[in-house]
Design a protein around this nucleic acid. Sequence first.
DNA 1: CCGACAATTGTTAACGTTGCCATTTGAGCG
DNA 2: CGCTCAAATGGCAACGTTAACAATTGTCGG
Lengths: 351, 351
Amino acid sequence: MAGVRRGGRPAVIGDVARLAGVSPQTVSRVLNERPNVREETRSRVLEAIRQLDYRPNLMARGLVRRQAHTIGVISFDSVLFGPASTLLGIGRAARAAGYGVTIATPESFDRGSIVEAMADLTSHTVAGVITVFASQTAATSALLSLPKGLPAVAVEAAPDDSVPTVRIDQAEGVRMAVEHLLRLGHSTVWHVSGPRERMDAQTRIEAWRATLERAGHPAPQVVPGDWSAESGYQAGLELAEGQGVTAVFAANDHMALGLLRAFNERGIRVPEDVSVVGFDDIPEAGYLIPPLTTVRPDHEEVGRRSVETLLRLIDGQDDDAGDSQDAAVADVAVPFVVPTLVRRASTAPAP
Amino acid sequence: MAGVRRGGRPAVIGDVARLAGVSPQTVSRVLNERPNVREETRSRVLEAIRQLDYRPNLMARGLVRRQAHTIGVISFDSVLFGPASTLLGIGRAARAAGYGVTIATPESFDRGSIVEAMADLTSHTVAGVITVFASQTAATSALLSLPKGLPAVAVEAAPDDSVPTVRIDQAEGVRMAVEHLLRLGHSTVWHVSGPRERMDAQTRIEAWRATLERAGHPAPQVVPGDWSAESGYQAGLELAEGQGVTAVFAANDHMALGLLRAFNERGIRVPEDVSVVGFDDIPEAGYLIPPLTTVRPDHEEVGRRSVETLLRLIDGQDDDAGDSQDAAVADVAVPFVVPTLVRRASTAPAP
DNA sequence: CCGACAATTGTTAACGTTGCCATTTGAGCG
DNA sequence: CGCTCAAATGGCAACGTTAACAATTGTCGG
């Protein structure tokens, strides 16, 4: 029952108006739930909309309102568990608020392709932008190339204070992980890090070091990784050679998984000989050999909060005369999402 | 160097025209790379564009052209490795073709929220739709509710032949896995399946059974799972009780991972006592204990092909007078992406 | 029953771009 | 040198919607 159309074209507001016997403006009022429409008129219009299967043309609406009702998301590493979850949270929250989501995935991390992706988004098509895990120098600095006045929120990493940033409280998560190991009696904790140039990797390194030092333990050399299981495996082989390694904190679960494999291969038992803690609580974490103790950040919540923050920014902008834009940015609270520690079988008292 | 603007508002085509001393129409011609513009004029316009940092308003353009240059993607389970990879492939391919991507993630699998998500997309905002892994009955049938005439492509699962579908050649992948195990001398192969109501799960079940029967081996009862590591673990515990289980094919790597864990817990050695094969080749597969033999489908390629197919559909529609739409659909080749078998340490000759 | 005022509805003009057609300019040729 | 024709450019209208204002209708007190 597709309804009557003019020559097969989708119905437009004028068709609805004609069928309902009112002006387009009245239809518009019904669509936008504005007051001062008689109940009887409203239902007549709604019936016409139903009959014609009418859908407002969002491009026309966006054009006249000068607002796209769409959020642009620039997403890196969107295959990874964390970013993918955040993306999901963003999508759901945006849709709930009546916003569409368009995503741009830069080809690579170099500044050029990032700026290009942003340009794509910003052709007046989005009301604001969220960058997800742009945690690399080139990426964060590209954030600054966004048109002045376009609301933006960064997830996890931003170049400076000009962009409100929603983050996992990584330092707190790392602290939980490291202190958990120390409480088990380990004399120190080794760290397999993410790629050095990534901000979140850097943050975790620093938090790890700080926690150790605060507790009066020496911080060993960082074993560098790149988030991948492969790099965790390599790190594990390296650590297996070392003496006195009894506790390792990996900057994410994938690397922890590689560690487990390497230790297993070398006949090192987890957790009897070495305790391992990860970060992310990927869905598989509880089913590794052994089940992995890890830090669980709520990535979806990060997505939700970033949308919330962005929408506040967008609304604030609408209200402003446009001059006190900076004040509005400063006003926006920058939420921290606090992770939890999930204890499983990969950690045990020091041997 | 943001350039001169009228009252802080972003520049529009008229501003560019004025600065370059030409008409808006000429600017438009330059923007759209149309012929018959003098070289000198063109460069003057380009310079003005640069100076003003002008970006065409895509909503205005879409409005007048009656085409959004945007692809809508409806994505389920987008946190999973497969769908996330496909999404990435779609994003890259679309962007390369100059199309934007807007995604909609239905809240759940029920028909209502799916239809709602589609409605969001189809408010004349997208030139076509791709559904990613809508492999559930409600989801695929919802596909049919898309407005007639809106080009659509399904990834992996479609309700019928009206929607071109890009798929992994699952049957072929399953065949590889099962035959690999049979060649190793196993008398039969057990199967831990995905959720029954999912089409791809169903396809894998049937291919598994067919391969066994073709080889003259009995097909044991299916052990049902739900894609999760947890369900694989439960399946593993169950299989560990059974007699004569020497080879298991899991419908995805996550479940295979759960299997490995369960067998390990029960003292069953992989691959000495039982061989395990997965499906997906998640990045971690090579670093499990033991490294997992698995079927590797190229999910990103699926994404690319689906965009390619959709664009062909869109272009075809533009050309048509609109009447031979169905012919155009039938014309579009439906590609099969053939997976490969990755042999690792989780499989060995039958004990 | 009239006037004032609120509620309801309609009219006109934008939003920024491109399609269509008209106009101007320039080149080539008899 | 004038004519033809192509190349280059401009003017106007339209895409579908909403903002701003105008007009109409209805209600209520005096």
